[in-house]
């Protein structure tokens, strides 16, 4: 029990606090019905998980999560929410039982599987002694780039990154094809603005 109160307790407490906030936010999302609150809380979830990424040394991932999860995806979700609805219909209590049982069973199976996993932060875990360690050792003489994440991303796994870039591009193209490229609405906005100004009404009301 005494080793719980050493210098290592600080990071552990940060982890516990962040994970507790994540739990609170996730349960709130599950219980809420206002879509605006749900979207905002999903942004909060992303931001807190970004803080947790920083706490486990993944600075690049934390940065990405903060920019993409908390910034971009909240903006996209808000835009979609404006186009669809504001509130979700209340769910029937009986319908919640099935998913609850399925999720509980899955959780039990996954927790049973973690018994075989190496402990959190184990330096001798197979995942940490294989390719990852080799990248760290080889990186400096191979590429001369201090940030190993960047060099793995662009050099060692450049082909992978090319695929991801194409996926992002295709997803953007697909969204534009589903919803229109936006020019039509631009023309409409300009027309209505001109009409408004022509009629002499008050500018930019709502």
């Amino acid at each position: 029990m005494r080793e719980l109160f050493t210098a290592d307790a600080g990071p552990a407490l940060i982890n516990i606090a962040l994970l507790a906030i994540l739990f609170v936010v996730a349960i709130a999302i599950a219980r809420l019905r206002s879509l605006f609150a749900i979207v905002m809380l999903s942004g909060v979830y992303s931001l807190v998980s970004a803080a947790w990424y920083i706490a486990v040394d993944a600075v690049d991932v934390g940065y990405t999560e903060a920019a993409v999860g908390a910034g971009m995806s909240t903006a996209v979700l808000l835009g979609a929410m404006l186009l669809t609805a504001r509130t979700a219909k209340p769910e029937k209590p009986l319908k919640k039982l099935g998913p609850f049982l399925i999720c509980g069973a899955t959780a039990v199976m996954l927790i049973y599987a973690t018994v075989d996993l190496p402990g959190l932060g184990d330096p001798n875990a197979p995942a940490n002694t294989g390719a990852g360690l080799t990248y760290l050792q080889v990186n400096w003489f191979d590429t001369g780039v201090p940030n190993v994440v960047t060099s793995v991303l662009a050099t060692y796994r450049g082909f992978d990154t090319m695929g991801e870039t194409v996926v992002v591009f295709v997803a953007g193209l697909a969204v534009a094809m589903l919803l229109g490229f936006g020019e039509r609405s631009l023309a409409e906005t300009l027309r209505t603005a001109k009409k408004r100004r022509g009629k002499g009404k008050e500018g930019e009301g709502s």
Partner: peptide
């Protein structure tokens, strides 16, 4: 492009 497509649609 994604933002324009979502925001450019008339609600």
């Amino acid at each position: 492009t994604i933002f324009y497509a979502l925001a450019g649609r008339v609600a």
